[in-house]
Design a protein around this nucleic acid. Structure first.
Lengths: 221, 221
DNA sequence: ACATATAGATAGGAATCCTATTTATCCGTC
DNA sequence: GACGGATAAATAGGATTCCTATCTATATGT
């Protein structure tokens, strides 16, 4: 009898192919949503990134890291947004070399408009059961953390690295975790990926919290 | 006590954000792998798509559908690849309007070189346990199927839509499914996303197979 | 045949994205 | 306090992606 282990690609490779498939839909979604607001996917990503951060603005370098592109490319996109009046470049308070890119009021309106657009990806995710969605969220968080540790992603504002996060602080099966910032219990389905209130914990504290939070996953070597 | 349901974005929305995060890494990975072979992510996607299909070649329209871009864009990329000698445009056997885009020997070599490149995404996926990887594969398959049904993806060569697929044909917990093509039992971790031997089953047969395969997930309306 | 639909190419233009380089500022050290 | 190496961003130059709109040629149905 044939052996599937030798017939097919390794599982991680097939998974990556699957994620690539999802990524093409994601990108097509971004095109339709963004172009309805007069911009394109990259610009919309920059805009929503800036909108989710503080009023002090972000540096071009940080925008580039978030997009996973080089700094000149980020400059291009920021300039395109500036031409459209959706962002403004200001002086950085701490460093005269740096600039602070901030969303304008018009920019925030565009973000909101784009956020309201129904996307094929959302509809597909909605066909999963609540349990499946929660499972998927956890897996995505694990991947994001691995990628952050590997340096493939800049610091992510996820619960796992936050000083306010208390994993398994409660006996409840539904809401075992606790957030010291809002002082509330919550469950896996409420874990955040980019929390505005995130404060990074000390590395050793992060490691310990992760160990208690997700003992199953191995730490990348 | 604060309520997380009202505090945070809906779960599908956060999931989409997470997938977007993974997509940026995926794209950066594609850049480094592809540029080592003298091309860019889009070209490498076209090339590996063609390499995974028959020798009769694919039409420009199909390339466009696979990439999720418009036909003129696909023409651009195919032309770029043709200039580099990695694909060839030939006459289509069935339709004089159409062309058959085929990989050249050099093109296959490039695909192989890119495939061997170690990627950050693969390393991250490898940090998941085998069980987690299998869970993720299943979730990704469910999403791909939803997206295909919704028309957001062209026909995917996944087991779930294949006439050779017999879900839960065996009592084995490890390898409950059966593939009539290779005549072998297999488990969730061996499910394929783009099987070269795939033959689409009748819609009604597909629906019935899916019902037996994954009773939990709801069908998109 | 004739109208309509479809495959692909072409035209035109905005943006993405890279590498390499330049300018200005920061920062630790002598 | 000046000097030299890092760092933030801009600039230059160029290939490609990606769109919409349109054009040509072939297919297809009445």
């Amino acid at each position: 009898m044939a052996d599937f282990e030798t017939l097919s690609e390794p599982l991680p490779r097939r998974l990556r192919d699957g994620l690539e498939r999802l990524a093409t839909v994601l990108k097509a979604d971004q095109w339709s949503a963004a172009s309805a607001a007069g911009l394109n996917p990259t610009q919309s990503l920059v805009l929503s990134y800036l909108a989710g951060r503080g009023a002090s603005g972000m540096r071009v370098k940080e925008v580039a890291a978030h997009l996973g592109v080089t700094q000149p490319t980020a400059t291009d996109s920021v300039n395109a947004l500036e031409r459209k009046g959706l962002v403004r470049k200001g002086a950085d308070a701490d460093d005269a070399r740096a600039i602070a890119v901030r969303v304008t009021t018009a920019g925030r309106a565009a973000v909101k408009a784009i956020g309201l657009t129904a996307m094929a990806t959302d509809r597909a995710l909605a066909t999963l059961t609540h349990g499946e969605q929660a499972d998927m969220l956890l897996l995505v968080i694990k991947l994001i953390r691995s990628l952050q540790i590997a340096g493939a992603l800049p610091d992510q504002r996820i619960c796992a690295t936050c000083k306010y996060f208390q994993p398994h602080a409660h006996a409840s099966a539904d809401k075992p975790h606790h957030c010291n910032f809002v002082n509330a219990a919550f469950g896996a389905r409420h874990l955040r990926l980019d929390c505005a209130e995130h404060e990074p914990a000390e590395p050793s504290v992060q490691a310990e919290a992760w160990r208690r939070f997700a003992p199953e996953t191995s730490t990348p070597s």
